[in-house]
Amino acid sequence: MTEITLAVNGTAKTVDVEPRRLLADVLRNDFNLSGVHIGCAHGACGCCTVQIDGVPRLSCLTFAVQCENVEITTVESMGGPDATHILQQAFKSEHGLQCGYCTPGFIMTLAPYVDTMLAQRRMPSDEEIREAMSGNICRCTGYHGIVSAVRKAIGDQLGSEAAA
């Protein structure tokens, strides 16, 4: 066992883990963050995507022992139980989810992408959005609603900036 201190969603906690334990499992079981969903557990589905220092990362391909001295964020940090983050709201209004299993992974992958587009002040093409989310699999929506949600999250913010 190895004692490590992880900074997750702004709070540091020390846990004792075997090196073989995946970050995804440690977040779910030791930090009670059940928003980290595990689909395939070998890097094919994107459900378990979290952010490490703001960059999307598959927590099933990461060992918890590798994650000292970095900031880990999960979907729980985004909009709380009411899902108030602008991208979460757009997923709701644009039917970007049905069963919701893949949704935390999409949100954690796409939230930094939306921020990048806002910083560049541009609306990406649908093809670019699909490329940005090509590491995440959704079996319910057929992806159209998710593309619309990304467009809405970017468009609304660009629009409100223009109006202000």
Partner: peptide, 9 residues
């Protein structure tokens, strides 16, 4: 190569 999350790491 893979997708953006893989290309980042």
């Amino acid at each position: 190569i893979g997708h953006p999350t893989i290309r980042n790491h």
